[in-house]
Amino acid sequence: MGTQFVLSEYINLSMAQAVYDKLEDGTFTGRIPSCPGVLAFGTTLRQCEDELRSTLEDWILLGLKLGHKLPVIANINLNREARHDSMGAV
């Protein structure tokens, strides 16, 4: 993969899996099947996509904070234990 922005790449790859539907009232709904509970609505497709991205970001941050197991997306695993290296003398 070679990217240094792992979280950004994870979000972008997750968003690439998004599924959108147009509702009977003309509004839109979006979801990411591999990320349970990530769902959004919008009056336009663009607004729905923006809302879905925001929901996904919040979902990831909350999941990391609470220690929830997040799905591995395209071999990006955010579930690894944090490694704390010594800062040594600063």
Rank of each mutant, 00 (worst) to 15 (best):
E51K: 08
L78V: 12
D50W: 07
K22H: 08
T27M: 03
P36G: 01
L39K: 07
I11P: 03
L23M: 14
R46F: 09
G88A: 13
L56M: 11
A74L: 08
T55W: 03
Y20Q: 04
M1Y: 12
I11H: 06
I60F: 04
G67T: 06
F28K: 09
A40H: 05
L70D: 00
M15L: 15
R46Y: 08
T29A: 10
W59T: 02
G2M: 10
D85K: 10
M1L: 11
E24K: 11
T27P: 00
L52E: 05
T43H: 12
C35N: 06
E81F: 08
Y20M: 10
G63T: 06
D25N: 15
L70N: 00
D58M: 06
E9W: 02
T27E: 04
E24P: 04
E81V: 10
K22Y: 09
A82H: 10
M87N: 12
M87G: 11
N12R: 14
G42P: 00
H84L: 13
S8P: 00
L62E: 15
V19Y: 01
A74F: 10
I60A: 06
A40P: 05
L52G: 07
S8Y: 09
E24M: 03
G30E: 03
M15I: 13
V90M: 02
N79R: 01
F41C: 06
G63S: 05
A89W: 07
S14T: 10
A18Q: 05
A82F: 14
N77M: 13
M87I: 13
N77V: 11
Q4V: 10
R80F: 07
K65I: 09
N79Q: 07
G37C: 08
A89G: 02
I76H: 00
M87P: 01
K69Y: 00
R53P: 00
Q47T: 09
G67D: 04
L13C: 06
C35W: 05
I73E: 01
R46G: 07
I60G: 05
M1C: 09
S8T: 11
G37I: 07
Y10R: 02
E49K: 11
E9T: 11
Q4A: 06
G2N: 13
I73Q: 02
I73V: 15
N12W: 03
I60V: 14
K22W: 09
R83Q: 15
E57V: 14
T27S: 15
Y10Q: 03
G26Q: 06
L56P: 04
K65E: 15
G26A: 08
A16I: 00
I32S: 01
A89T: 08
Q17M: 15
I76L: 15
L64D: 00
A16E: 15
Q4T: 14
D25K: 08
S54N: 13
K22I: 15
G42E: 03
N77W: 10
D25E: 13
P36E: 02
L61K: 07
F28D: 09
I76G: 02
L56N: 03
S86V: 05
T27F: 03
V90C: 03
R46C: 07
M87D: 11
C48Y: 11
L39T: 06
I11F: 04
I60N: 03
M87A: 12
S14G: 14
G88S: 12
H68F: 01
P36V: 02
K69T: 00
T3L: 08
I73G: 01
N79L: 01
T27W: 04
F41E: 13
P71W: 01
Y10D: 02
S54R: 10
R80W: 02
L23G: 04
Q4I: 11
L70F: 00
